[in-house]
Design a protein around this nucleic acid. Structure first.
Length: 431
DNA sequence: TCTGGGGTCCTAGGACCC
DNA sequence: TCTGGGGTCCTAGGACCC
């Protein structure tokens, strides 16, 4: 049996955990660059903020005046996710992180009442990690996900939904729209609706060849999972990464090559850091840049893919990325975004060709990269930056309302007054 | 002025092979 | 008149996820 636990309005609740003033208020966390709404509290949803609403449009709406808008703080959310994971590991034999706010629980062989266990898990995560959650239970991952969705939809429910028995499923399935199912996106829902298939019950009753014909093998898997046949096993070790990317919109449009060069150098450095953290090397990369696709500016969009000598060395990757960017740079446009994606990733021992004639001394390179990563880990990202001389860039992303990194920066730690403790779980802030 | 970022998997079609 | 069968590998694009 699987469980799926999922943080309610996860990013918003991470903010609330450290700032009591946000509790009970309509709160929205914005995407990078303060672009659009990506996490909303119940209060904000009730006021009509939708997922993906562009901030600059929605902030003008008078009924949304009371909403508090926060820039996203991934250092905080990532660390809160880790805390949630640790609490869960104490309570069930195995936990498989699925996303920053969702984790599958292996409930096989758990001897007691699963709903009771789920209740205890929710309470522990709430108390220790400060995150409210919902839990879904089912014999497959897809059913656990669906149960979780049902639990989340119940306004004053228990926060738990159990789909472990066929009876529980057939009672609910006729009322659940197909789009609620994990793996059923807009395109599939639309295709099936043409044949009158709208609810999960309709879909489950569909013959296999029909499913295969309209949705190919992925649809077939979802279909099987909904009938209780597991196709996605529980897996402990995270699969090795296929791609590592760093792509960003600029805080303002940029028009100069030097700015673009700096951006590309910054992004590729960041990606190389991730690459080393995963112990991988890249043997190809894609670099892209484009102008704003929403406004009436003259449009330009280009992308190049280059093969490189397998590397995780920042300097090597910078060279390749800069050349690629230069080859597609056209002066006279207002660029809005650029990015780099590292592809064809290898574990060094699996590399098809050993770098016998490597143009860089591998021992030296390894030592320099280790030093670079250590300095940046200790003193903050970008303390040592290859390929950029001088002042801070002005094109970086907008993050107008960023919360402190309460849990990952010493300078940002909350301070607690000494003296008699008050009977409250709220941190006592020193102004 | 201002519309995110980072992933995975699958398929179709072309090039190529024997 | 008639032009096989069975593969692999690569890429671009679609669909989906959070």
């Amino acid at each position: 049996m699987f469980g799926l636990i999922d943080g309610n309005s996860f990013y918003c609740e991470c903010e609330r955990a450290f700032d009591p003033k946000l509790r009970g208020k309509p709160l929205v966390v914005l995407s990078n660059n303060d672009g659009c709404a990506i996490s909303r509290t119940r209060e904000a949803k009730d006021l009509g903020v939708r997922m993906g609403d562009p901030y600059h449009l929605v902030a003008k709406r008078p009924e949304l005046k009371p909403v508090i808008w926060k820039s996203s703080n991934y250092a905080l959310y990532g660390d809160m996710s880790r805390r949630m994971y640790e609490v869960l590991c104490e309570m069930v034999p195995q936990v498989e992180p699925y996303s920053i706010d969702e984790m599958f629980l292996d409930l096989r062989g758990m001897p007691w009442d699963l709903v009771k266990l789920a209740t205890e898990i929710r309470a522990a995560v709430r108390q220790i990690a400060k995150i409210p959650t919902c839990v879904g239970i089912g014999p497959t991952k897809t059913l656990a996900k669906l149960a979780n969705k049902v639990a989340k939809g119940e306004r004053h429910g228990s926060g738990i939904c159990d789909f472990s028995t066929p009876e529980a499923r057939s009672a609910k399935f006729p009322q659940i729209p197909l789009g609620d199912v994990w793996g059923m996106g807009g395109a599939s829902v639309e295709k099936l609706a043409k044949g009158g298939i709208r609810s999960v019950a309709d879909f489950v009753a569909l013959p296999l060849d029909e499913v295969r014909k309209t949705l190919t093998v992925t649809g077939l898997r979802t279909h099987a999972e909904l009938r209780g046949l597991s196709c996605y096993p529980f897996s402990l070790n995270a699969p090795t990464r296929q791609t590592i990317a760093c792509t960003r919109s600029f805080g303002r449009m940029i028009t100069e090559w030097e700015e673009m060069r700096q951006a590309v150098v910054t992004y590729v450095s960041r990606a190389a850091e991730k690459l080393r953290r995963h112990g991988l090397r890249a043997s190809a990369m894609q670099v892209f840049m484009h102008t704003n696709l929403f406004n009436k500016d003259p449009r330009y969009s280009n992308q190049v893919t280059v093969a490189i000598e397998p590397a995780s060395d920042t300097f090597a990757l910078i060279g390749a990325a800069t050349r690629a960017a230069q080859s597609m740079w056209r002066k006279g446009y207002r660029y809005q975004k650029a990015g780099i994606v590292l592809i064809d990733l290898y574990q060094p021992q699996d590399m098809p060709v050993q770098d016998m004639f490597a143009s860089r001394d591998p021992v030296k390179s390894k030592a320099i990269m280790a030093a670079l990563d250590a300095v940046n880990a200790r003193f903050g990202r970008g303390t040592l930056q290859a390929g950029i001389i001088g002042k801070t860039a002005t094109w970086g992303m907008r993050r107008a309302n960023l919360s402190p990194c309460y849990t990952t920066r010493l300078d940002d730690l909350l301070q607690v007054n000494s003296g008699p403790l008050r009977s409250t779980d709220e941190p006592h802030l020193i102004p």
